[in-house]
Computed example of a mutant assay.
Amino acid sequence: MKKVLVIEDDPEIVNLLEIHLKDLNCEVLKAYDGNTGVDKALSHDPDLIILDLSLPEKDGLNVCREVRAHQGTPIIMLTAKSEEIDRVLGLEMGADDYITKPFSIREFIARVKAIFRRTKMIEDRITSPESKTFRFDELTIDIEKRKVIVRNDKVELSPKEFELLTLMAAHPGRSYSRSDLLKLIWGYDFDGYEHTVNSHINRLRAKIEPDMNNPKYIKTTWGIGYKFNEEVTI
């Protein structure tokens, strides 16, 4: 049974989502303000968080930021059409997906199922017998332990940063467009949100590259996107 935390201040929406999540065999936790939402996220370790942007006491962006500082739980944001900028910021902070209000229950269920499928694929990959450790010069990536070491120091990566790094490191020399990375890492087509990939790549580079102005591991392939440098010593 999956555990889902719904952080939403509208009781009618909470009740509606609870009914349909229970139909998916999910245990539903509820929070009606941001502070309670953060507390429940950190104390109950849910499998998925449904997070409204407009919340009392603490807004959804700050909730997302605080949760992401401690755990990689998938987050689906609920946003209004007028919250375009906040939606972009939410994705850049680590939200996995967003749904614009008003939304259909069919769309909601499809998004939830897609998150669960992607989570299972990642877990299967990590726990499979083929799991391994990548070593590239001063960079070590332990897939099973989700640990990254740079020059003997452990580096803390967000879930999306880790997934970007492992995807590219597993295929050195292969170029990925920003659209490719959005589909593979976020799981959906976010038209117009390619800059979200840029932001995550920049933060990833800041953590693993010895020189941001001359990246050693993650190279830009002009006109296409990014690739892991195939010339780095293994």
Rank of each mutant, 00 (worst) to 15 (best):
V6R: 05
I7R: 00
E8N: 04
D10F: 01
P11Y: 09
E12F: 10
V14E: 13
N15D: 15
N15Q: 13
H20L: 04
H20Y: 15
N25W: 03
K30F: 08
A31D: 10
Y32H: 15
G34F: 09
V38W: 11
D45V: 12
D47W: 06
I49L: 12
L51E: 02
S54T: 09
L55R: 02
P56S: 11
E57W: 05
E57V: 15
K58F: 00
K58I: 12
D59L: 10
D59F: 14
D59Y: 14
G60W: 00
N62G: 00
C64E: 01
R65V: 07
E66F: 07
R68C: 01
Q71H: 02
G72R: 02
T73L: 04
T73D: 03
P74K: 02
I75R: 00
I76A: 10
M77R: 11
L78K: 04
T79N: 06
T79W: 05
A80M: 05
E83H: 03
E84G: 00
I85G: 05
I85F: 10
I85P: 00
V88P: 01
L89V: 12
L89G: 00
L89Q: 13
M93I: 13
D96C: 04
I99P: 09
K101V: 07
P102M: 10
F103E: 03
F103S: 07
I105N: 12
R111C: 05
V112H: 03
A114K: 15
I115A: 12
I115G: 02
F116H: 01
M121T: 11
I122K: 08
R125C: 02
E130F: 12
K132A: 11
K132C: 10
F134W: 12
E138Q: 15
D142F: 15
D142V: 11
E144T: 14
K145Y: 07
R146I: 05
K147R: 15
V150E: 07
V150K: 15
K154P: 00
V155I: 06
V155F: 01
F162S: 00
L165M: 09
A169V: 10
H171L: 09
G173M: 09
S175V: 11
Y176C: 02
S179H: 14
D180A: 13
K183V: 14
I185T: 07
G187Q: 04
G187C: 04
D189N: 12
D189S: 13
F190A: 01
F190T: 05
F190E: 06
D191C: 06
T196I: 08
V197D: 07
N198A: 10
R205Q: 01
R205L: 08
I208E: 04
I208N: 04
I208Q: 05
P210R: 08
K216Y: 03
T220D: 07
T220Q: 09
W222Q: 13
I224Q: 14
N229H: 00
E230P: 00
V232C: 05
T233F: 01
T233I: 01
